[in-house]
Design a protein around this nucleic acid. Structure first.
Lengths: 213, 213, 213, 213
DNA sequence: TATGAATGAGGGTTCATTCAT
DNA sequence: AATGAATGAACCCTCATTCAT
């Protein structure tokens, strides 16, 4: 965690430092990231940096925590959405809402992506907490009779989140394209991709385009 | 590619170098990985290293290629399995067979995992080639009438592979636990997780709280 | 150019570094010169060196520029001397004055000597500028009727400067001996060495086209 | 000096080694020159090199000596030319003849140029011997009454040779241009450049043996 | 004699961190 | 608290030479 001097800084200066760090760690791994680059971009003296943070790792963890919290924090409308919609709708909608947040920077997702290969215990905890919000919704939806009771909630969440990150990373500037793919993926998990017997699909007279409704 | 000197080495020595490199690159990104550490672990003089490899990148690419080939190479029974089974069975069975291969080391998967965040063009190619094997099977299964024609093959493959890597990485020493989760995930994609008959769920005008039920 | 840190150094320390570098580059070509040797002789830590200079080339060019400026800078009395004396007197006198300058170190000439074989564009420019001062004087003296109009100014300057450097280099510690030889060489260029018609210059009634055979 | 094994080599192979070394040392200073490059260009194994030469310096000195001897060796017609012509004609003519020699490679002159900054005692000796041929001719011409008795022979030779090397180096591919400038320079030394009484010598239509007198 | 792998000192450079002002 | 110079370990890589076969 930053030293208290960091929090005594003017918001403007603190922001400069934060943004510079964000950008550096979004584009470089921990050891590739350069303190020199950060202080240069933040336009602060080298000595000052060590007034604010104990060392490189201190800054890094602070960044991760901030980013993770951003992901973990329920969105404005999440509460009300959650009331009626199922977990899948919640994920779709909150993901959309997330990208519409003004203070969410593209770097956040890059860093979140890098967290995946991170073995740091602290990071693991953050990741787990983030997943828990959704596993809880899944359990609720099971009770609601919307989701098969024997479906493993954790697996569902992991599947969606790992795909989501990956896909974002590959589509990078094209958020709309990414959101569309995410929708498709979630739909597959919901409905399955096999043509068949389950779901009563295939039962005579019942198909995708059947007349019920 | 290594120089020919490398291949003239005794199997024991070559193994020492390969393993040391494997371990280093499994636990560090390219720029974090240290040649010094590798030669120390392999117990070879610094000069010798450069007798075997042109430079750090040369070693790295060699490792990647080896790992990628290991993943890309069709397994013993893959051919015959593919004949009758659907793509999902193929994935399940080949993954199992893969882990039963004696020469597959845990580091292989770590490195494969790191490839995901790699922007190197060469790596991208490898990744793509690896995915293509399965997208083709999916297209085949669509024609067989096993998979919904409008399901995007690429998304399916990405979903499975990103989940697979991630899950392996988290379960690390427990391969059996990992394989079980992979099965479950694949089943979910196959069958879907929602309770219900239809597939119209989520379609515009049809929502969770529709009059059914 | 050195970083500003270098110029903030105490004169003593800056001198130590400068002298060490001077000596190294006076006795070695660019690629032969060793930063390690320089910092050892200057007794500064390796890291400090790179606090003062961007890299080896930075130091080298700084040295060259310093040396070149020393050579290019008009001497105290050059201006007034130039007024009346011919180019040859100017060269003789300024060369003498140059060696009387206290801050001129023998290494300067060694480095200047090495510049002769340097193909670096920057060096070429310096060399050219240095020569131009004298070619201009020669052209002036042609107009004054002191020098034959068809004598190639550039050749004269090259002849004197290449001889001068060479001779200094060979006589090295004996500056007086060198100066004497330079005088003789210049006189030869002025008057020629062949036995002929001239050389009773100024004597009434004796000219080029006199009747002696 | 090379080991005897070197001289036992086939002329073809020996030539390959010599040429490769020549090229390397013509384009690089001693420590910049790379044995690796030489054996690669000569297409011989590394171990073999050390069968032929004790070390890098051994090869270098051998090369220098060979080159120096080439410069020192009187040319075919030098003897007869020397009989009647003065030293300046001899220099002009032999320089021309030198460049017409088939076995003289451009690299010879580059290496000769590099010898100038060489402080090696052995090289100094070679250089001196080379100069001596001409100082002797000058002394002879003094006795012949062609050259002023008080002109220092060594200075004359140094002036011409230092200019010659320098000029060749700068004009490099243009040998004709270089030879013309050399002629001019020599003429200046002969006749002088100051306007005196004579000095129409050398002007078109007016030569040493003009009709005057 | 021929070979080419083995060696390690040395090269230039970077960088997080400390410290004196 | 603010500064920026000082530091040295670590980085990747090159190379002449030696040595075992």
């Amino acid at each position: 965690m930053p030293k208290k001097t960091y929090f005594h800084l003017s918001e403007e200066k603190r922001g400069r430092i934060f943004d510079a760090a964000l950008q550096e760690f979004a584009t470089h791994s921990f050891s590739e990231a350069s303190i020199n680059q950060i202080i240069k971009n933040a336009d602060i003296p080298k000595g000052s940096f060590y007034q604010y943070f104990a060392n490189k790792e201190d800054l890094y963890l602070y960044l991760l925590e901030t980013v993770a919290n951003e992901f973990a924090e329920p969105l404005k409308h999440e509460q009300e959405i959650s009331q009626e919609a199922d977990v899948f709708e919640v994920i779709k909608l909150t993901t959309r809402e997330f990208f519409e947040l003004e203070h969410i920077k593209p770097e956040y997702i890059e860093i979140r992506m890098r967290m995946e290969v991170d073995t740091n215990e602290f990071i693991k905890k953050i990741r787990k907490a983030s997943a828990e919000r959704y596993t809880k919704l899944i359990e609720r939806d099971k009770e609601r009779g919307l989701i098969k009771p024997d479906a493993d909630a954790e697996i569902i969440v992991n599947m969606i989140s790992s795909f989501s990150l990956n896909e974002y990373y590959r589509n990078k500037p094209d958020v709309q394209g990414y959101l569309k793919k995410l929708d498709e993926a979630i739909n597959m998990i919901k409905e399955g991709v096999t043509v068949g017997q389950d779901k009563e699909i295939g039962k005579p007279g019942r198909s995708n385009n059947d007349s019920r409704g």
